[in-house]
Design a protein around this nucleic acid. Sequence first.
RNA 1: UCCACAGUAGCUCAGUCGGUAGAGCAAGCGGCUGUUAACCGCUGGGUCGCAGGUUCGAGCCCUGCCUGUGGAGCCA
Length: 466
Amino acid sequence: MDWPVQIVDCLAGKLPVGQSVTLKGWVRTRRDSKAGFSFVNLHDGSCFDGIQIVADKSLPNYESDILKLGAGCSLVVQGEIVASQGKEQAVEIQAAEVSVLGWVDDPESYPVAKKRHTFEYLRTVAHLRPRTNTFGAIARIRNTASQAIHRYFNERNFYWVNTPVITASDCEGAGEMFRVSTLDLLNVPTTDQGKVDFSQDFFANEAFLTVSGQLNGEAYCTALSRVYTFGPTFRAENSHTSRHLAEFWMVEPEVAFADLNANADMAEEFLQYVFKAVLEERADDMGFFAKHINGEVISRLENVIASEFVRMDYSEAIRILEQCGKTFEFPVQWGLDLQSEHERYLAEEHVGRPVILMNYPREIKAFYMRENDDGRTCAAMDVLAPGIGEIIGGSQREERLEILDRKMAALGLAENLWWYRDLRRYGTIPHAGFGLGFERLLNYITGMENIRDAIPFPRVPGSALF
RNA sequence: UCCACAGUAGCUCAGUCGGUAGAGCAAGCGGCUGUUAACCGCUGGGUCGCAGGUUCGAGCCCUGCCUGUGGAGCCA
């Protein structure tokens, strides 16, 4: 197929001055000159910048259409690429023909009029916010990061596994889940014991939206060696913070014959790969974030790419926190989980860049994490990023059936997760993996502070609009 | 779920002692200009979140509710 030219093709210098092109897009601004022409800034989303259209009054619809254009109008412009006399752009389009595809109904109340808007307000018009500089840039960076993630794994013989969105069992025994049911809420069938009779439900059992594809991923890992999941996950937690979504995207690699150190190495290499791709492929959008959102975004990604992540045992982190002389709201003591304030201190003040904490007390971590020989820790790791907190959580998995049985029995998981147990019964292997919250990664990359701005249509408690 | 803050024009906000409403931006019109966060002038634009209460009188004080934001917990 012969794809039509877009603005990115014109601005990237792929097309020579003098070339005739037809462009389609949306007006951002219009400025008139009484010398007899107007400047129209046209965007089509193909790159950060729009292109300047110069429309002369000799155009037949200059008075009737051009002089009425405002933010949001959609246009078809046929014209010639010419060198610009202005300073802000190298080339522009000298229009030979401009036709309006769609006007803006009531410009005064157009929700994304030409002015500054708060992110909070733009969330209330999430269907229109991709037309703004910020959200256009986020959308392109989100895509670039996604493509880089797939490329990173593909280049290393990983297979992308599409794990189910609907699951019959609570994967980790952690986190509230969204129920999936077709039962009539006004007439719920009950058993003799007066409980809900899920045998009459669609799946003949209780069903939920997944909170993680990890356990299914492990099943494919023990056959294909290197796999990853990348898809939506769901948490029904009533969390009301700038770091939580009810629906978010997670990346979960699972590697056969790998231990915790290999897992940490992969987490580091993976993040560096993705950051490098974003800096190289989306310099235009990253320049915007550096200029208008957070002046550090580019330099801090460059630092992460250039330097090794700090690796630190949980026990050492506890010692550092105990001896740093800082007063924390929550206690620091071996055996207790680290609070947000502790993680922030370690990543932001003590280290100043991403830090990988390893070997946590086994009591505070999930059942599938491998017990260490010291009898009190497990092979868990968290990657903490300054300003974001935990961005990756992972572990070497428990491959020894007896130990896994003991832990699953204690949690009452043995019955539902019989199939997970089978993975240790039939040719068990050491393996490891991690989970990465994709929107948190995007916040770290762009410097955006609220996770609701990292996903096109955020779902949070009390709100599933659009 | 807990704590704190907020809700006034399309948007961002001000509103003094309780006396019936203001600015900037945006929009419309005009002027100027190879302009580009354009600039200058004029104009239109209000159920002060909702429901009660106190008061001669409430944007302002009281009660309840709703919504949003930040933080905690939980986590990615």
